[in-house]
Amino acid sequence: MTAALPPVPWASSQTQRLLFQPGVTANPAGGTILCEVATHPPCRLVVADAATSAPGGTDPPQTSLELLTAANDGVPEAEALQALRNWAEQGRPHPDPAIQTLSLHGVQVVWGPERVGVAAPGARLPLVLPTVLEFVCLEQALSGLERRLARSWPQLEEDSPLAFDFDHRADRRRGDLARRFQEVLGLRGRWAQLQPPLHRPLVYPPTLASQVGERLRERARLPERWESLGSQIDVFQNVYEQCAQRAHDWRLAWKGHTLEILIILLLLGQTLLLVFELFAGREA
C-alpha cells in the first residue's frame, strides 16, 4: 500500500499497486506474480513494492495499475458498485466513459485504464479474483498492442508510397523498412498468441468465476477488438511486404542496370580499340 493511492470505500478493502509487464523475459524487480498470460515472452501482472522499479534494457515499458479488492458482505449491490465507481473515478473526469462496471451474482467489478476494483462476498473473493486479474492481463496486453499500432499509423502512411514506387533515395531507408517489417511480424506473433486465452470455450456447468470472466470479456469486447487488431496488422503487413518486394526488385534492377552499363562501356572500349587498330593498320 502506498500513500498516493486514492482512499478506499470501506474498511474491509485492500489496495495494491500492480505493474503490468508486457512480454518481459524475466521478472526483473522480483515482485510477486499475480497473473501470467502464457505468451512468449509472457505478459505478467506483478505486485509493485518499494523495491520495484521499471526495468532497463530493451524490455517494453510497464504499466502501473491500482487494484482494489473488497469483501462486500452485507453491502447492498448498488451501494457497493457506486463506491467502487467513486474510487475508480477519483482524479478523473466524472462520469468517465473509460471506466466500466459489471455487477453479477453478488460480484461487482470496476475497471478503467489505471484502476481495477473487485468486490465480492468474502468467501468468494478468492474464487473470482484470479479471473478478474487474468482479464486485466489480457485487456492490458490487447490495449498495449492497440496503442503500439495506433502510434505506427503515421509512419505507415509515410512508408506506404514505397510499396508502389521505390528509388535510389528510398534505398537509404531500406534498413528502417526492414526493421519496421520485423516489428510488424513481432506484433502479429504477439497478437496470434492472445487467441487461445481470448477464445477459450465457454464453461458448462458454469462457475461464478467462469461467468464473471465471460461477462468481462464480452463487456470489454475483447474478441471483437482482437479481430479488429488482426485486420489492422494485415494492412501493416501488406504494406511492408510490398515495400520489401519493391526494395528487392529495385535492388535487382539496379544491379542489372549497373551490369548493362558496364557491358556497354566494355563494348564501347572494345569498339574504340578496334577502330584505333583499323586506322593504325591503314597508316602502316
Partner: peptide
C-alpha cells in the same frame, strides 16, 4: 440463462449449488 431458483434461492452457478 443459467440460474435455477431452488427453495427460493438463486443458484446461478456451481459455487451457488
Amino acid at each position: 440463462g443459467s440460474a435455477v431458483l431452488l427453495d427460493g434461492q438463486v443458484l446461478a452457478h456451481l459455487d451457488d449449488i
